[in-house]
Design a protein around this nucleic acid. Structure first.
Lengths: 190, 190
DNA sequence: CTGAAACGGAGGGTTTCTATCCGTTACTAC
DNA sequence: GTAGTAACGGATAGAAACCCTCCGTTTCAG
């Protein structure tokens, strides 16, 4: 693969993650190409259909999730509270909100390649292990599993509106902190 | 106004609140008419432009908010904790998530009638008083005002996706509870 | 019962998005 | 350095979705 082609592919994936995350997965593909600084034809050359692009973005995001979680592995043992907070803020900064429904939708269809299923299985596993550790450290209450955590994270990072130049961007940091507090077990009432 | 016209108007407002809330404010107006069980022409007769409809829905929602808050006025003094939780769940059940951006957007434009501004001012006032009471009862921590509460409530009741028959409807009740916990002051660390 | 107000939905007109084509650019291998 | 080819860009045809009006039919109220 030629070097410029590879760089464009990366730029497109990045742009798609940003645009999908801040507006919606239904935006015009021209907006993605513009954000990436490429022509529309280049987008179609790398991702022939919209599903190809969305699926690639979802998989890319899943791999980033796993990487972030792996990076905090040691710190989670030493300083659980600080690490947990920093970790969740990093996940939130990727703005996965708009992509969660696509995850459900895409993998409900047929023709999903095997390696994609493996990536998703891996992120689920990683997530479950993570929540279990946070629970053990007293940072997450019983009854929250990996999927629930994911849904909640999507809720607080979901774009507020698909209108481009909108006032409220969503995914504000204080909201993530409220979410983190909300996940904790009750100190006063067991 | 003829009785059937009035009934249709109400049905359209109700339908619009449901459809906007569960999908997005950008849905085709035909979907709203269908949900209301009327023809598309009836919708246009009552609400000549999309903005007319959205503005009416927003105002209707604001009035429902004020009404709900008024209804809990006494109970909030007697049983703050239970009342606060029930109240917020009732507000969440109206699924205001998708409408908050529209509120900002519509009232940023010109030509908003005076009575509409009054309704919005009233709901803001009501909201602020409410948060203040919850704060006094130790149910909400410092630093959360009416607008922040509103944004958070929007986040947890926002539709997950604009795709019609989607898996995840959002606004799940457990998420509202997580939000309520997240708003509380820290018991362990002051 | 009669007149007028309201209704329904088909369809034309317009906007928006998709996806391809082909002349131009720029990387790589020799 | 140059030739060959892979990749690029943007204009644009074609398709889809949506808006909103028109007019024949229905329903309310006096």
């Amino acid at each position: 693969m030629r070097s410029d082609a590879l760089a464009n592919r990366e730029a497109l994936l990045d742009a798609a993650r940003r645009v999908f995350g801040s507006r919606s997965c239904g935006v015009a593909l021209a907006a993605v190409a513009e954000e990436a600084g490429t022509g529309i034809a280049t987008l179609y050359r790398h991702f022939p259909t919209r599903d190809d692009l969305v699926r690639s973005v979802v998989l890319d995001l899943a791999e980033r999730f796993v990487a972030i979680e792996a990076r905090y592995d040691a710190e989670l043992s030493m300083e659980p509270e600080r690490a947990w907070r920093a970790l969740v803020h990093e996940l939130a900064a990727l703005r996965p909100g708009a992509l969660l429904p696509e995850l459900f939708e895409l993998f409900a269809k047929e023709g999903v390649p095997e390696y994609a299923r493996q990536v998703v299985a891996r992120v689920n596993e990683s997530q479950d292990r993570l929540i279990e550790r946070a629970r053990a450290a007293g940072l997450v209450r019983d009854g929250i599993d990996g999927v629930a955590f994911q849904v909640g994270l999507a809720a607080v990072t979901r774009p507020l509106s698909e209108v481009p130049g909108h006032v409220c961007a969503g995914a504000e940091s204080w909201l993530v902190d409220v979410y983190l507090r909300g996940l904790r077990p009750d100190a006063d009432r067991p």
